[in-house]
Amino acid sequence: MSVKDERRIDVASPTLAAGDAQASPAAASSSLTERIIAALRTVHDPEIPVNIYDLGLIYRIAPKQQGLVEIDMTLTAPGCPVAGEMLKWVEAAVNGVEGVGTVDVSLVFDPPWDKSRMSEDVQLELGLI
């Protein structure tokens, strides 16, 4: 399954992070991105018992030089009462990934989130398919 094609998430090709210097560039970028995604899966939407990655709230993951990671995310609804807190949860989770030094999380609303962004497993779990 291709994350970018099926989930419509922009996963930029990262520049090597400090901890990935011994690995090949392709393996290092894949490994760092996989670790970031695993960290994102530890953050759950408080109103829906699903992690934010599989819920489809993550729009872009872009590892950069010197351990910087840029993340664009959205909310299921613009008026989410924990919006500010959720950004901090994402930052804290990704900051714990080896090779990540700084996390810049941006809240975006274009395109608007809808249930088609959820993984099939989540849609099935929530009884939507």
Rank of each mutant, 00 (worst) to 15 (best):
M1C: 07
S2C: 06
S2M: 07
K4P: 04
K4G: 09
E6W: 13
E6F: 11
R7G: 04
R7C: 02
R8K: 10
R8N: 11
V11C: 10
A12I: 12
P14S: 13
A18C: 14
A18N: 14
A18E: 15
G19K: 15
D20Q: 13
A21I: 15
S24P: 14
A26V: 12
S30F: 12
S31F: 13
L32A: 12
E34H: 14
R35D: 11
I36N: 06
I37G: 02
I37A: 06
A38P: 01
A38Q: 09
A39N: 12
L40S: 13
L40C: 12
R41V: 10
V43T: 12
H44M: 12
P46N: 07
I48D: 05
I48N: 02
I48W: 03
N51I: 04
I52P: 07
I52A: 05
L55E: 00
L57W: 05
L57M: 08
I58T: 03
Y59D: 06
Y59S: 06
Y59C: 02
I61H: 06
P63L: 01
K64V: 11
Q65G: 11
Q66T: 07
E70P: 11
I71A: 05
D72T: 03
D72F: 05
T76L: 00
T76A: 04
V82M: 14
A83N: 09
G84F: 00
G84V: 02
G84N: 08
A92H: 04
A92D: 06
V94M: 04
N95D: 03
G96T: 03
E98V: 08
V100F: 00
T102A: 11
V103N: 11
D104M: 15
D104E: 15
V105G: 10
S106C: 12
S106G: 15
S106M: 15
L107E: 07
V108A: 03
V108L: 05
V108K: 10
F109S: 09
F109V: 08
F109A: 10
D114Q: 00
K115F: 03
S116L: 00
R117H: 02
M118K: 05
E120C: 02
E120V: 05
E120S: 07
V122H: 06
L124H: 11
L124N: 10
E125V: 00
E125N: 07
L126E: 01
L128D: 01
